[in-house]
Nucleic acid binder design. Structure first.
Lengths: 140, 140
DNA sequence: CTTGCACCTCTAGTCGCTAGAGGATGTAGG
DNA sequence: CCTACATCCTCTAGCGACTAGAGGTGCAAG
């Protein structure tokens, strides 16, 4: 029975120490047992859970979505329809973001290309920002 | 001299009323004159400024960056090198975000496609989240 | 004159952490 | 055993960019 300190858990999971305590506070991670001196003592299962959370966060899932995914993970007999729905919603969101960012990219490229590196009154960057009508994404 | 109320300014600029007040509070917008009854009274120039800010926010510029852009806009004799630099930095950021999101998209698609719509213990969504080693972006 | 909307200020909440204060614990060396 | 030092503890406050709500005032139409 080796005791895993919060620092060790952090190193193994890649989740920062204050973030681990934060996750405990918001109920994503259940409170671990404590040492005699009141220090948190984790088990391997907690590390797995932290890795799960970190990975989901990296994929942009919100904490509420992760909460649901963790509940599903804890009960393997359930249908995975919810997990599927959450992942699909996230996929749609990511696709939407990519589309917006592509539009932004086009507009920013035009701004940067149009900048004659002269004075501000000839600068397309400022001009485009000031007058929405001149810009690439006035589709709304 | 028609007086523009904050509500009218909001309608014309597309910036919400509390957000206009917020912008005034953080010094993005200078405090307008007031009516006898202490109500804010805007001028057309303020509307242009709000449109400028809104558009810049839509393009993802941070408030600090917008502050700099507004200073540049107010002094058209300045070199537009700063504006150019800010726009270029933003472009690089957007490109980076697009790359990350594309990687995410690939991974989420694999998750969704791999979900057999059965029980959680056969669900790739949960599985991939639990085990980083199985996923598409373990390049770090 | 009254109704009702728009306006005012102020505080607190959102999300997902992060930083810092001020103190206790655990460990390694002398 | 003592000391030094890293790590741990709790608690509160701050970040960015708003948003929501309470509690009160102004103003225009009927």
């Amino acid at each position: 029975m080796k005791k895993i300190t919060i620092g060790e858990a952090s190193r193994q999971s890649g989740v920062k120490v204050p973030t681990i305590r934060y996750y405990e506070g918001i109920g994503l991670l259940s409170a671990p047992s404590r040492s005699e001196g009141n220090q948190r003592s984790y088990e391997p299962a907690d590390i797995s859970r932290l890795v799960f959370i970190r990975h989901a966060r990296e994929l942009g899932f919100e904490v509420d979505a992760i909460r649901t995914l963790l509940i599903l993970q804890d009960d393997p007999n359930q249908s995975c329809a919810s997990a599927d729905a959450i992942a699909k919603a996230r996929l749609i969101d990511v696709e939407q973001r990519i589309r917006s960012l592509m539009a932004l990219k086009v507009e920013l490229e035009a701004m940067v290309a149009g900048c004659g590196h002269g004075r501000v009154d000839q600068c397309r960057v400022i001009e485009v920002l000031a007058d929405h009508g001149q810009c690439a994404h006035n589709h709304h």
